[in-house]
Design a protein around this nucleic acid. Sequence first.
RNA 1: GGGGGAGUAGCUCAACUGGUAGAGCACCUGCUUUGCAAGCAGGGGGUCAGGGGUUCGAAUCCCCUCUUCUCCA
Length: 895
Amino acid sequence: MPTSSEIRQQFIDFFCQKHGHTFVASSPVVPLDDPTLLFANAGMNQFKPYFLGTEKPKHTRVANTQKCIRAGGKHNDLDDVGKDTYHHTFFEMLGNWSFGDYFKPDAIAWAWELLTGVWAIDPKRLHVTVFEGDPANGIPRDDEAADIWKSVGVQPGHIHLGNKKDNFWEMGDTGPCGPCTEIHYDATPDLSGAKLVNGGSDKVVEIWNNVFIQFNRNPDKSLTPLPAKHVDTGMGFERITKVLQGKSSNYDTDIFAPLFEAIRATTNAAPYEGKLDDLKDIAYRVIADHIRTLTFALTDGATIGNLGRDYVLKRILRRAERYGRQCLGTDGPFLHKLVPTVVEQLGTPFPELKRNPEKVRGQIYEEEVAFLRNLDRGLKLFMGIAEKTKAAKSTVISGADAFKLYDTYGLYIDITEQMAGEQGLTVDATGYEKEMEAAKELARKGGKKFVVTAVKGELPKTDDSPKYDVETIEAKVLGWVVDNAMITSGTLGAGESAALVLDRTNFYAEQGGQVGDTGTIDNPATPGVEFQVEDTQRLGDTVLHFGTMLGGGLKVGDTVSLMQGTLRRIDVMRNHTATHLLNLGLRTVLGGHVEQKGSLVDDAKTRFDFSHDKPLSAEDVRRIESFVNDRIGRDLPVSAFELPLEQAKGVAGVRAVFGEKYPDPVRVVLIGPEKPEAATFDDSVEFCGGTHVPRTGTIGYFKIQSQEPVAKGVRRVTAVTGRAAAEAMTQLSTTVTALTDRFQCKPEELPVRVGGLDDEIKRLQEHLKRALALTIDGLLDAAPTVNGTKVVVGQLPPAGSEAVRAQLDRIKQKAKSAFVVFGWDEGDKVPLVVALTPDLVKKGLKAGELIKPLAELIGGKGGGKPDFAQAGGKDAAKLPEMLAKAKELAEQACE
RNA sequence: GGGGGAGUAGCUCAACUGGUAGAGCACCUGCUUUGCAAGCAGGGGGUCAGGGGUUCGAAUCCCCUCUUCUCCA
């Protein structure tokens, strides 16, 4: 029986040694340069540019094994993992590729040769499918492929026709596409699998798909043949291993055996038995699968967090942790201990795993600990809710409670359900779903002011190349969008709101973190016509000018004149260029780990999110500001170039935002060097379609206003420039001047002066305390004893109730039995306290009651507990009278 | 982007309806026992995250800021 490593190698050797292919390493499973993808999910990801024709391949035939993750996004297998024999969030895709080289005959012949020759699979167990054709689209049935299959020896009755969904492959809405032919393996004992092809059975499973890319899908949905034809194949490595090792489940192969053993050893659970409906076995499969995903994703540079792909990884980790805890009885972090097993097993085909496994293990460990902490807290909260539920004589935990546990404390619903079961309770799942829906709705509503997601009718393209300049241009009205429908007739009248569509524009549509422009559009031929633009957004290649007709009317075909709000636009440009300098400054000052995580640039500020795991110190902020201001002071030129994406990536010091979509060619903005070749790693070089000032001097001045955390490991700083920075400085200086006038000192002396005041206050408080102690000692000495109880009544110097309370303890210690009443004059109010020693409390006296009539005497109120009460009044003149009354009251009470 | 929590001794957390901030662990001192674990007695340790407000009185109620956790997009 071949090992999985041998199988992988045999595939690669077959194409590389026997058929002239070149081996190409897998691209990272975290596609850093293709932000449209959450994770690499197919072997073709890294070859996309070859099919699109935007890049020339180095070799025309290659073979590879691609690391893939399908979790989140379009292909999401996350919830299926564990429940069957063949779903994975992480898997390998073996592939052979022709870029304009060989086509159907070779691809099919070699596939057959590898399967039935090299691997000696019984041809009776193989079924193939070919495309049935699509007359509506003018694509004929793929008889060519069927004929080749026949000629290589596929059994009659083993060639099936497949529909568009299964046998016509498209990369996206437009672009290269073509028919494909799939090979399925029939594992039924009696070879009865023909009818199960594409039937969703795990007895007959697709093992290899050969795609023949020969058309281009045009935007008008028509197809044109490509000048060059390509082959793109993908074979599920785990599936072929299962077949060649004669197993009935991918999880029974030697790919998973070492992981299962490692899981058993770290959790001390009973061994894996391969049952489909056994919770313990499901847990084994989930954990083995998820640790592979986590190890590869983290190795390739992903992080665990709260956004996008980071959040997917967090959910995967927590799902695995949960299965371990619920089904295998783990009680502490254990997933991290499995990393070495993954590294050992796959470190040879994927050497990147060996680069820094300790870091990966650390990341997993840290997140496990965080999750377990949450879990403990959640369990505690759950117990409280369970008690509450039982106390209310109910056996159902409300949906609201269950949802709160999840929403606020991250306690998953199935854990809640399990815990409830153990307590003889159930959970109102319907109510939970309702709460969840309501919460989602709430989150959605907090979105944007203007939203257009889809428009009925064809949207024309807008030429927005004039957007980089700040000057008035003319354009033609093509129509407008109202209620998500494109309108191209009639008049847009005064008072109406719409999204205006023009043939060209100088308005910048919101993109790359820069806000859309505002401004006015009028008709030079007809005075009084004015459309006020409140926001500008882009939908595909169309620029939408959202706004309101203030006066007059507009018709399709009118020539209009466009003015961006000039001052606002220049403010935006200042902020955008400053953002680039800030990006560079953060990295320079804080270190290379700083990555841009997002930004928002508008006329008032620049807001920048970046990876950094602790608050910035005052010194950090100062150094970053001075770095940026230094570059502003040098009045560096800002220039932009359109470069092919590949070439642009090679420019020294280039920064691209992860998660951002870049066109090819891409616009590169340089600050300092005037040519891409002149750039160094100390210069700001960014892919950016935004608008910038011509020289950094225009920014004027840069000032960081605030910083805050956004998510774990991500911080946000907000800064201002130009006019806003000047305004901020003026305000600051006004405040400082007010202080220097008050203290008659220089600004730099302020900290010392204020600190001195602080010390002075402390010193005076000490004095007061001492005076207070002396007064109290005097009162104590002079206090009459009534029936063994000291009656301590008197007026104190104003020292604050905190200090008085501290002294009360002293009195209670000195005099075993005491009835204490103190009052003092604080100017605007007159506080009063009554304190009783325990013996008096036992006799039934209540300070809280005794104090009330006294408080009334000085025009106030109060209350407290039996041994201590406080009150306050306003009438200081009545203080002696009140104290006399208190003495009377005390003496009475003690008799 | 929107929602919900949390922040109290070095650590983990209490404090009822607003009424003198506590416990366990850790630490220090002493005693006892001793192979180890420990036991007993005493003690130190607080800007109740910070600021403002309401109140006679705020850890507690309200507002703002900071830090942190969590869910959704």
